[in-house]
Design a protein around this nucleic acid. Structure first.
Lengths: 195, 195
DNA sequence: GTCTATAGTATGATAGAC
DNA sequence: GTCTATCATACTATAGAC
């Protein structure tokens, strides 16, 4: 016999996380109160603590989930082999993945300083893992002669900054399609790394 | 006859602004209370209102001063003429200027959302002016055939993101000197924009 | 599962003494 | 010019009713 009323946990939990993500991205973690999140969901502030240990866990969990999703998605997609092909795949993947998750990306970059020390260490480790994916591709390409890279770490950071920067200006329905943006960025990245 | 004690306004004012900049950069505008700023300066919270209208003015004034300094400094340095030479000058200028003002840069990028609507409009106009400096150089270079740029606006945004990204990873006394970083970034930027 | 009520603390800003 | 004291409000988190 089915439940008539009562447990909405499977619905309200995700809604709490979604509301928190929206609000943290738009106003910043410190500026968003539990009351604001509750109001967005349509519950009272006290009810939020059924779905999260505290406000900090709300922030950490969404940042960690984002970084894990990023690393997993790339692992799934990584073609391996030729560094030039891998880098093209990564450039297109990075732009697309980040454009589809603007709020999460914004939070991942802006709210590091609002993590507790332990949580900061954990998230920073995930970030470093992704940076090393990019650096690894550039190192391979340098070794094989495909890329004229002086310093693989520096170039990796430059490429990541450039790609993630798309989020700051690209707006859907604007002058350029995402396909076009991908194309032009890949062209710039490729040229910046070859002879 | 000289004052023995009393007015410290010319000293305390700048110290208030400096403390606010440090704290806003490290903890974020919303997370920093007037009491924290006062403690950093060594005065009581109430005394801060002798040097600023309110907390928002503290934020706006430092962001506006930063953007004006950026635009003025470039206008002073702009060699004019050949787009390739202008762009090299800008790349080196941008990295250097931003590295010397890490806190202000961080705030200028992170705290836009904590500005009141009017203040947001004012700061955004300054940002756009700087973006148009870069876009203008790329447009000139495209017209003269020096740059193979598909979309001057997109490329300007890509270059700015890449250059400003230096702030997120470069640490003084690290593996690479700032001169070396400048060199490598200019090399990457130049290659990404030519044939 | 959600509510109301509340404890305990922190906030931005002002008034008035010195 | 700076202090102390204070107003009015907001905050996170918990307890207990339903």
């Amino acid at each position: 016999m089915a439940r008539k009323t009562g447990s909405h946990s499977e619905i309200t939990g995700p809604r709490v996380r979604a509301a928190a993500e929206r609000l943290f991205a738009r106003q910043g973690y410190a500026a968003v109160s539990m009351r604001k999140i509750a109001a967005e969901v349509g519950v009272q502030a006290g009810a939020l603590y059924l779905y999260t240990k505290d406000k900090q866990a709300l922030l950490f969990d969404m940042m960690d989930a984002h970084m894990v999703a990023l690393l997993d998605a790339w692992q799934e997609l990584d073609p391996g082999g030729d560094p030039m092909m891998r880098l093209e795949a990564l450039v297109r993947f990075h732009i697309r993945f980040h454009m589809e998750r603007q709020d999460a990306v914004f939070i991942a970059y802006m709210e590091l300083r609002n993590l507790t020390p332990d949580n900061y260490v954990a998230i920073t480790a995930r970030r470093k893992a992704y940076e090393q994916v990019v650096e690894g591709i550039l190192s391979d390409g340098k070794a094989s002669g495909a890329f004229a890279v002086e310093d693989a770490h520096l170039s990796a950071m430059a490429v990541i900054a450039m790609l993630t920067g798309v989020n700051t200006w690209y707006r859907e329905g604007g002058r350029l399609s995402l396909e076009r943006v991908e194309e032009i960025y890949w062209d710039m990245v490729r040229k910046s790394l070859v002879g």
